[in-house]
Design a protein around this nucleic acid. Structure first.
Lengths: 199, 199
DNA sequence: GTCTATACGGCGATAGAC
DNA sequence: GTCTATCGCCGTATAGAC
């Protein structure tokens, strides 16, 4: 009854076995591949290996599942930047981030940026979900901004961070639309070179 | 009976009054604001001021309406580049294009790039619609590439064109997600400055 | 060619047995 | 806490009168 493992997620509902989180990450994955609107709860249940009817025990509505998927992306972002923070030089952290994006180029070619495409889809709506997505994007921008500050660009760190993230989102869109992973490789190298000019 | 005005669209079905084209451009507009999946045929019929049942006389399926919306975007692109081609200097044409995007910043803040968000949404699907969208994107890239060639960058004109369009798509995504038109202004100026360094 | 009424299917959500 | 059966709505698409 008294439960254990609240888990390190954005939300902290208990429930042993991590079924809730399995659903959340499955939702994030399937939403990425199919889009939110074309994904049925049945799709997610299948992907998470949870019986359909049981989904409603953990998430009362589909929108709550979307919210959980956003939280899942935030967790992933925190984990990734946490790793990058172990590198000594901020410019290297940014370039390692780009390297990670390039490594994911095949996925990006087929489905786009996992978070960017989700945020874009949610932005067509009026409910609070779009704002939740904006927070995650802002978290990334803030982290990048911190790197530029450490590189001695205190004055325009914010605009540089926007430019950096925008560059990634843009190359992800074209990689996806053109179905060409090479776009990510070439443009990613371009972005890395730009970081070097600022170091 | 014998009909007139095939109209200058991508497709060329007749039918007086331009009802078909009114439906196509209404579709493009509503798809932009609501996304394809959340838009019903009733929404489009209302926007075009055409009775719902009558829509099926012009478009047998919703997908055909999506195709027509893509065609509508292509028409708009051709019209825009046609205007820009009247400017003497290629660098000025690119900067004028950016200026147009900045002028649309309020719309971009609310709904994103009219074509980029559509292409992104269609890319989650497997039917041919995504490829049709890719063609429009490619048409823009090709036109931009031509400008860079005229600026004497024959060697890397293609990569520069990809970078240019990606920069726009990226700033559009962030403008939209952050709901901040200023992002488009600031980053648009950045992009224009970059064009100047290549001129 | 125009428009209304309606069939059909799918999906989100609920009831309730276990 | 788990799972099945099912309801009710909504959106695409069609039939067919005008």
């Amino acid at each position: 009854m008294t439960d254990s493992k609240p888990a390190a997620g954005a939300s902290a509902r208990p429930s042993r076995g991590g079924k809730r989180e399995r659903l959340a990450s499955a939702a994030a994955r399937v939403f990425h591949q199919q889009g939110v609107e074309r994904t049925t709860l049945s799709d997610i249940a299948t992907a998470a290996d949870v019986p359909l009817g049981n989904v409603y025990y953990y998430f009362k509505t589909k929108d709550q599942l979307v919210g959980a998927a956003i939280g899942s992306h935030l967790d992933g972002l925190r984990a990734a930047t946490g790793e990058l923070d172990r590198l000594p030089a901020p410019a290297d952290r940014l370039k390692a981030l780009i390297g990670g994006w390039i490594d994911q180029r095949e996925t990006a070619a087929r489905f786009g940026c996992p978070f960017g495409t989700l945020a874009t889809e949610l932005d067509k709506r009026e409910d609070g979900l779009d704002r939740a997505a904006a927070e995650v994007m802002r978290a990334l921008i803030t982290w990048v901004e911190g790197q530029f500050e450490q590189m001695g660009r205190g004055a325009d760190a914010h605009d540089l961070a926007i430019a950096f993230v925008a560059a990634y989102q843009g190359m992800a869109v074209l990689t996806n639309v053109l179905r060409d992973p090479e776009v990510m490789s070439v443009q990613g190298r371009r972005l890395a070179d730009w970081v070097d000019t600022l170091a």
